[in-house]
Design a protein around this nucleic acid. Structure first.
Lengths: 209, 209, 209, 209
DNA sequence: CCTTAAACGAGACGGTACGTCGCGTCTTTCA
DNA sequence: TGAAAGACGCGACGTACCGTCTCGTTTAAGG
């Protein structure tokens, strides 16, 4: 979860504390409104109303729509992305691709993820926030998967140190391909497609070494 | 170029004809404003002002911001994407990746492409327009590149008919990876990265057959 | 009537002209809302709604609540204040006092006049606007009444030129007394009170000469 | 001084007593803020901050802005209005007019007095409060001045009982004229103007009898 | 001296109105 | 009759104060 606006003085102990219920209600309302109205239709006033909260309360915690949505998405990525060991690199890749595609097919994700990426191209702070809340979490999966494959002997062990360039590229390829398939081409990501992508990657990785 | 709004009566010939200058000025102004202000800051009123044109004139030709921007981008994709024969599949892939990345790094593209994709997730007509104006053009490159490689003998010839699933996947992987690298990870796409992606793909393609 | 915000370029002839209906509807709605809710309860959003007009239309014509209300009051002063010749100075004074008191007892005037005076103490432009729209109109009555009394021989003719100091003082005394009686003391201004004030003034004027 | 909100249980003796310093600090801060920002710009939050006091403390003592300001003004009227015997009715009137005008020219009074009058037209309780805190104090001056003049023989003695109608009218005329001169006409009240007003009144009073 | 209960500072809270901005439509005049 | 100019209805924006509400802390009086 990304850090939101702190009470102005970082850790003062005085005054009425912020309501944790409000936080939860706002994020839930955000996801609900996203699913219902899409990014373009989402209104901070509406979110506040759904959450049973005043607009000011919302603005006290998040500087704007972008940051709020990033945090709302972050919660989803937090609970939905994991990488069970499926026995082989190919199966692991297929698994994560399917999981990620399923996440992208939620109505709140479909409409919002591209939108915050788009906003982020003009806003470094937002980019940073996305990186922390979403991207790094996904990258971790690549790292885990690669190490697991090395332990299994499917990939050669690192001599000395791991090559971050390789992990980064794999990450861009996996995430980018799935996002593009789902949100641009709007074609389904089924088991077969996921498996063929896994095959392509495993084959390509061999060529890379 | 995507079809814009036709003059209401398709074949009436009377009255003052629409100015073609206005069209060009509007699209140029759109690109300029995109580069300067980004998608979020782009205003149709501002575009009209830059183009020296009344807002009405603009709305007579395009239904809204989304469609206008798609057309403005389409022109860029039209003139910037081509695939010279570089002698090998790997070089061809590297070439198209570099070209595409360069296109994505234009300020008007950076900010606008993701945004229209995002809008399109909620708007089938827009999705169709994007497909015609942008996506199909890119897909053609994959087709061309694959056929060239088959002619060279780098890939096995199709028995009977081509497999569109394979072309589609390659397209999603190439386009998705580059977009993600440039716009999400915001890391540079240099010759080395492009070559390594090409290597991965060529290696993977072998495994796929 | 006070001049409102002019279309930015003073006398351009182009574009859709401002609706005169809107002007009338807005001023009427303002008076209605004032009477119903009082100055403090009056909301520009509410006025716009009553007038069947968008808030922006209202702000295009008046810079704010103060100026709008001054104009709305000005219309009342325009139509309600006149000075019929009642035959003697004393009767004329009594007449104008009664008329003025009746005007101040309208619910829209009661609540609004003091409020704009109060606002004006901090805002020279507003003060100027009030002077033009309201005060000068009242001062004119003093001038007329004095000249009439001189013609009748009730007051000595001016030797050479009129003394503006005398007119100004009479004006402050009449207007101030009535306003104070009605709005501060909140006692009624009936024929008897008005006559006694007239008597006081006529007697005092003799002493002043 | 008007009574403010009492501690809820009227005669309980337990608990921490209210700080008298806070009272003084709040009223002083109110006057300061009034002088600086005017009625419209005065904010209870700002007053509390200037007084070094929490908003709650302020609301515990006064129900709102109106009442607070009335009390703040009342203190001024208490200390500033007195009527030294200047030897004649005319001089006494001139004296009180000058004193009153000087009071109205204080920045805190200029802006606030009209404003609370305006608020009071819609709020009987506030009107009552103003009467007690401000108006009655001024009326007393009229009473004193009249009695003094009667003692001197400048005015005929009351046969039996005093006529309150006469005192009330004089009060409305004096207070109203000065307020109007200073706050509406925004012309100076100098010795000459004050003397001419006194002359007018003394002359008029003779006519009234 | 120690309890106890109210006052206190701080600041979050639900509201309401603000004045602005951009949208997409409309009504003018001009060429 | 198309185009410029700009007013219009609409709806969201982000801000400012309002008056209320929790908190934890302080402070006098009374047991």
């Amino acid at each position: 979860m990304v850090r939101r606006m702190p009470p102005l003085s970082p850790s003062k102990r005085t005054g009425r504390p912020r309501s944790a219920d409000a936080d939860r209600a706002i994020l839930a309302a955000t996801r609900e409104a996203l699913a219902e109205l899409g990014w373009g239709g989402l209104t901070l006033g509406d979110v506040a109303a759904r959450a049973g909260v005043a607009k000011t309360t919302l603005y006290r915690r998040w500087p704007g729509k972008n940051e709020l949505v990033v945090d709302a998405l972050a919660a989803l990525f937090e609970e939905r992305l994991e990488l069970p060991d499926l026995g082989s690199l190919r199966a692991d890749v297929q698994g994560v691709v399917l999981r990620f595609a399923r996440l992208l097919n939620l109505p709140e994700t479909r409409t919002a993820l591209m939108a915050v990426f788009a906003e982020a191209t003009q806003d470094e702070a937002l980019r940073q926030r996305i990186r922390e809340a979403i991207v790094e979490r996904q990258k971790l999966l690549v790292l885990t998967g690669r190490q697991r494959a090395q332990k299994r002997g499917e990939l050669p062990p690192d001599d000395g140190e791991a090559d971050p360039r390789r992990d980064d590229m794999i990450f861009d390829v996996v995430a980018g391909s799935v996002v593009h398939r789902v949100l641009v081409s709007s074609e389904p990501v089924d088991e077969e497609w996921a498996d063929r992508l896994a095959l392509l990657l495993v084959g390509g990785l061999a060529a890379l070494s």
